[in-house]
Amino acid sequence: MNPFGYCISTPYGDKPLVEEEIRDPRLIKKLDNYSFRSEKYKRANQKYGYLTQFLKSPKLKINEAGAYGWLNDKYTADSSAYKRNQILIHRIKNSDYHFSLADHGDRFYSSVGMMNKELRPFLSWEQKRFVEVDISSCLFSTGGCLFNENFWDTDGSKVDFTFKNVCPEVYRIFDEASMCSDYPCNTDSIYSYISTYSIMVGKSMESEYSRVFKDMRLYFDLVSGGQFYDYMRHLFSSECHPKYRDRREVKRELLIVVNCKNNRINVKSDDWVINPSKIFQQEFPSVYWLFHCLKMIDNAHAAWLFHSIESWLVLKVISKRFIKKKPGVPIITIHDCIATTEGNEDHLHEIMRDELKRYIGFEPTLKIKHW
């Protein structure tokens, strides 16, 4: 997204705001008119109407008193976080939802997804609480498809779930870009080089090359077993800095490792004993090189690709199948997790397990959490 900030000009900026209810029916009609919505709202609503129908439903309620109770305990009324969540609570209460799609990566954003996760327990659907099913280590789990030969198919004869279909923008860039002299190889384009490398690494685990790419077996075992973050937490905290005992710091750092510029591996800092990127490279050289290649032209390309993969699986595959199997039962997607009402989480878990195994080649760890 491209967020913009607005402020009230002097001398009104420091004055308290007074809420006024709009009563003019003509103005209300204009404000509710679809044509007044942003293009991002229209695009999201048109593309994912089967998801926005639940967010726009009057059946979705928020316990306003409870939400404000948490908000008042957490923030001061003049803080930006308080005001942001206040607006979102107000929008949900009045079924005035905001939807949009990211400019790259097709990520879906909504008012529910943008508010603090601590406020989600105050949401309900016909007095039923929500339960989420979350994909553990989502980026690394869903990224397993990159080592599947079918994902790199370009003629569309085998499957729809291909790099070319999932992230056409990056595909065109890679397919048209030639490899530079720093990467000696026998392929013409970056896409050909990356696809050849990824397929070779994927097949190595069941061939005589398994000793060459021995890090891959450990990588997939950790990711599929839901132990990847804990494993990296131990490495980062013991070899880099004690702050990485905090799991949140580990997750943040791993996202940086995947999405940062390739030259970050050479950066030195007084905060590190060893650069975290270098630790990742030493432990998983085969995986690190793939990430490196995805960022040859622009480090943003890796993020666009991984977000596109996540969106394809969560929004287009899993959500559609659940709605078809359980019509009328609500689901709310927040990037790598999907929430539904209590009593339906087992159906959702089963669908997510089956589809993720079919598309990425193994069953990732799925976590169930009540809102």
Results as ranks from 00 to 15, higher is better:
residue 143 G to R: 00
residue 144 G to I: 00
residue 144 G to V: 00
residue 144 G to F: 00
residue 145 C to N: 04
residue 145 C to M: 13
residue 146 L to C: 07
residue 147 F to E: 01
residue 147 F to Q: 00
residue 148 N to G: 05
residue 149 E to R: 05
residue 149 E to N: 03
residue 150 N to P: 02
residue 150 N to E: 15
residue 151 F to R: 02
residue 153 D to Y: 07
residue 154 T to D: 12
residue 155 D to M: 01
residue 156 G to I: 11
residue 158 K to R: 09
residue 159 V to N: 09
residue 159 V to A: 06
residue 159 V to T: 15
residue 160 D to S: 15
residue 160 D to G: 12
residue 160 D to P: 12
residue 161 F to Q: 02
residue 162 T to S: 08
residue 162 T to E: 03
residue 162 T to W: 04
residue 162 T to D: 03
residue 163 F to H: 13
residue 164 K to S: 09
residue 164 K to C: 10
residue 165 N to C: 05
residue 167 C to R: 04
residue 168 P to Y: 09
residue 168 P to R: 05
residue 168 P to D: 06
residue 170 V to M: 12
residue 171 Y to C: 04
residue 173 I to Q: 09
residue 174 F to K: 04
residue 174 F to C: 05
residue 174 F to I: 04
residue 175 D to V: 03
residue 176 E to S: 15
residue 176 E to W: 03
residue 179 M to C: 15
residue 179 M to G: 08
residue 180 C to W: 09
residue 180 C to S: 15
residue 180 C to L: 13
residue 181 S to R: 07
residue 181 S to V: 11
residue 182 D to M: 09
residue 184 P to D: 14
residue 185 C to M: 06
residue 185 C to R: 07
residue 186 N to C: 14
residue 188 D to G: 06
residue 188 D to P: 00
residue 189 S to E: 10
residue 190 I to S: 02
residue 190 I to N: 09
residue 190 I to R: 11
residue 190 I to V: 15
residue 191 Y to K: 07
residue 191 Y to M: 13
residue 191 Y to L: 13
